[in-house]
């Protein structure tokens, strides 16, 4: 589905990502873990077109039979049209748009006639959003904002969902709900690339994972193997977790 080949990304004059390779296959949940400043967010922003790699390519296939497209020369709005949806760090809701308007923005590029019915299914999935539909989104709690952010992403009917730190700043119970939802979304056929600080939860949810350290992939493999890996445990799982 997505194949990142040898990209180098700079922010200003800082070399952030070094020859990064990463692959996400159709239907997978892949997590990308690493310390603060390792380049996780930069990786995601490069996939969605907010940043451009200096070299290398990012190949994306809308389905298994289609011809791969190199997205590195496309602007973000064209990348969204390919079915890639990126939920940014900090949730990125529009605080002065209503909850309903936020959801509708998610469907910005759609021209079909099922936007209204998708809106209703979001309200079914997250009843709290229906209750608050006319409220400015900035007035929602952190957990509600995360649900809005997720609902807004689904409004684009993505094939490939990118999530940046969905657990950030949320109570454990809410985080668990969100992760359950991610699992259900994946079961409905949406491929997921997940960046998380909470490495345990990320590794438990995903099938494969990559470990990023100062802009380089230092480990990759099955999540189940990584969770018992000594190095991963020491660095990201606080040792005592397992």
């Amino acid at each position: 589905m997505l194949k990142i080949k040898n990209i180098d990304v700079y922010r200003g004059s800082t070399h952030v990502l070094h020859h990064l390779n990463l692959e996400v296959k159709d239907g997978e949940i892949v997590s990308l873990i690493g310390a603060n400043g390792a380049g996780k967010t930069t990786t995601l922003r490069t996939i969605s077109g907010l940043l451009r790699p200096k070299n290398g390519e990012i190949l994306y296939k809308t389905d298994t039979n289609s011809h791969p497209i190199d997205t590195t020369s496309l602007p973000p709005n064209e990348i969204v049209k390919l079915g890639i949806s990126h939920t940014p760090e900090g949730r990125g809701i529009f605080p002065q748009l209503t909850v309903k308007e936020n959801l509708l923005v998610g469907a910005y590029n759609r021209v079909d006639d099922q936007i209204e019915s998708d809106l209703l299914s979001m309200y079914n999935m997250f009843p709290i959003l229906q209750k608050r539909s006319r409220l400015d989104a900035g007035k929602l709690s952190g957990g509600e904002q995360m649900m809005l952010s997720l609902g807004r992403a689904l409004m684009s009917r993505p094939k490939f969902l990118i999530l940046d730190e969905p657990s950030l700043g949320l109570a454990p119970l809410i985080v668990e709900q969100i992760f359950d939802m991610l699992k259900r979304i994946n079961e409905q056929g949406v491929t997921i690339l997940l960046v998380e600080q909470n490495a345990v939860m990320a590794l438990e949810l995903s099938s494969r994972a990559y470990v990023l350290e100062t802009g380089r992939i230092v480990l990759e493999g099955e999540s189940a193997d990584l969770i018992t890996n000594k190095k991963v445990q020491d660095a990201y799982l606080g040792g005592a977790e397992s």
Partner: peptide
Amino acid sequence: QNLDVARLMGIN
């Protein structure tokens, strides 16, 4: 309100 997120929503 948010230029980058607007771009992520597919807004030109």
